[in-house]
Amino acid sequence: MGISWVDGSNLIGSDNVQAELILLNCESQYKDNPIDLHFTYNSLIKLYYKESDKKQDALDKCVNYCLKDIALFPKFQKAYIAEYTHRGVTPMIPRIPSFQQLAIIYEKQRKYKQALQICKRALEFGLHDNTKDGFEGRIKKLEKKISQQ
C-alpha cells in the first residue's frame, strides 16, 4: 500500500501542509475501512487543533472531524473488535480522543450543554478519557457550570 495515515500523522508539527494533504487523501482512500478512517480522523483532529491559534478555520475543521469520528465510532468499534478477535487477541478499544477533544472545545466556547451531551455519549459507549475523574467528573463540572448560568 502507498502512503497511509501514519505518514500524514508523522508530519504533524514539521510539515502541516503536507500532513493535511496526505490525511485528506487518506480520508477518501479509507471511506470503507472504519479502523483506518478513525485513525485518519484522529490525526486530522490533532493537526487542526494544533493549528487553531494560527488558522482561522482550523477549530471549525477540528470540530467537524470530532463529530465525524464520534459518528463513526459504532462502526469502528465493531470492526476493531472483529479484526483483533480474528487475530486471536482479546481486543481493548483504544482511547477515543474525539469525545474528550470536542467536550474541551465546547466547554471553552461556553457551550456547556453540548459538552455535556458529548460526555454522556462517551459514557454510553463505556469510554474513559484517561483523566483522574474521567467523563463522570467532567459531567459534574459541566452540570455545575450549567446551573450557575
Rank of each mutant, 00 (worst) to 15 (best):
S4N: 13
D7R: 00
S9T: 08
N10T: 01
G13R: 09
V17E: 04
Q18F: 00
A19Q: 02
E20W: 00
I22L: 12
L23F: 00
N25Y: 02
C26Y: 04
C26M: 11
E27Y: 03
E27N: 09
S28F: 12
Q29P: 01
N33C: 14
N33Q: 11
P34C: 14
P34E: 13
L37A: 15
H38T: 15
Y41S: 08
N42D: 12
S43Q: 05
L47A: 08
Y48E: 04
K50F: 06
S52T: 05
S52Q: 08
D53R: 12
Q56G: 09
D57L: 11
L59Y: 04
K61D: 06
V63L: 14
C66P: 03
C66Y: 07
L67K: 08
K68L: 04
A71H: 11
L72P: 09
F76C: 10
Q77T: 00
K78L: 15
A79C: 12
A79Y: 06
A79L: 10
Y80C: 14
A82H: 06
Y84R: 08
T85H: 08
T85G: 12
H86L: 14
R87E: 15
G88D: 14
G88W: 07
T90E: 15
M92C: 05
P94R: 06
P97W: 02
S98Q: 10
Q100M: 13
Q100A: 15
I104M: 13
Y106C: 00
E107Q: 10
K108I: 05
K108N: 14
R110W: 08
K111L: 03
Y112D: 05
K113R: 05
Q114Y: 09
L116Q: 15
I118Q: 09
I118G: 10
K120I: 07
K120P: 01
R121A: 14
A122N: 04
E124L: 15
L127E: 02
D129T: 07
D129W: 00
N130D: 15
N130T: 14
E136V: 06
E136I: 13
E136F: 13
I139N: 14
K140V: 08
K141P: 01
L142V: 00
L142E: 04
K144N: 01
K145I: 01
I146F: 03
S147Y: 03
Q148I: 00
Q148L: 06
Q149W: 02
